[in-house]
Simulated assay, not measured.
Amino acid sequence: MAATCPVDLDTVRLRNEIREIYARVAEAPEGEFHFHRGAAYAETFLRYDRQALARIPPLAIESFAGVGNPLRMGSVPPGSTVVDIGCGAGTDLLLAANIVGPRGRAIGIDMTDPMLRKAQAAAAEAGISNVELRRGDVLELPVESASTDVVISNGVLNLAPDKRRAFSEVLRVLRPGGRFLYADIVVESELPESVRRDIDLWSG
């Protein structure tokens, strides 16, 4: 299975298209997209806890576009530091912030400014003060080395053109014994070169 995109793929264009798509998801979540979004999808298809979702603002959940439920995959201890890669409008980020409590920290990282603004507004609306938002992406995390107890990610690694570098960044920021809880899309067989060169497929 390839861990990197073709060497001649225009990764700058890829990043720009990803930003454009998810900026539209932030600003107009009711628009037409080829992937599911929102609270009903999170609760019905991905088994998010209804009561937990009720504790965070609809502002965050309406733009939710994850592919799984990373917080179901392992425990997040109270008081711990959590980093959410590709936090979007903040659904998983705010859920994690509530779990770790006031003695913990939840750091959200996203490359899309409208998503960061929406996550910040949602945290403020909910009165959740242990949240910090940072601009960045999985290939160069704006996080100190060995500073994080748990890293979570939901549907972001499949968008990264260099998976080895992405995983290396996750391992860099985790403390010894830290945990990486992630949900993502994988394929069972090698994709043909024509598919791997299609930016529209990468960016979705």
Rank of each mutant, 00 (worst) to 15 (best):
P192N: 07
G136I: 15
R165V: 09
L9R: 04
T91H: 05
S189Q: 15
D10N: 15
C87G: 06
V150L: 06
A65D: 05
F33L: 08
I199K: 07
F167E: 07
L9M: 12
G155I: 13
A65L: 02
P78E: 13
P77E: 11
F45Q: 08
G68M: 01
G66E: 00
R135Y: 15
Q51N: 14
F64V: 07
R13H: 15
P6M: 03
G38K: 02
L93Y: 02
R72T: 12
A40S: 10
A121R: 14
N130D: 05
L14V: 12
V150W: 06
V76R: 00
C87L: 02
E140K: 14
I61A: 01
S168F: 10
G108Q: 04
C87I: 11
R105L: 13
E43W: 11
Y22V: 08
R175H: 04
A60P: 09
G88T: 06
G79P: 10
R105K: 14
I199G: 03
P142W: 12
R117V: 11
E140S: 12
L174G: 09
P114Y: 11
V156S: 00
S80A: 13
D200Y: 04
T11L: 09
E32C: 11
G177D: 03
T44Y: 09
V12M: 09
A106F: 00
D162C: 10
R37D: 04
M115F: 11
G79A: 06
M73K: 10
A183W: 05
R15I: 08
G127Q: 04
G88D: 01
D200K: 12
S153N: 06
E30S: 11
R165S: 07
V138C: 12
A121S: 13
L53V: 07
L46S: 11
V143K: 02
I185W: 09
R13Y: 12
V195N: 05
V82D: 01
T112F: 01
V170A: 03
G74R: 03
I107V: 11
R24S: 15
P114E: 02
Y22L: 08
G155P: 08
P176I: 02
I128M: 00
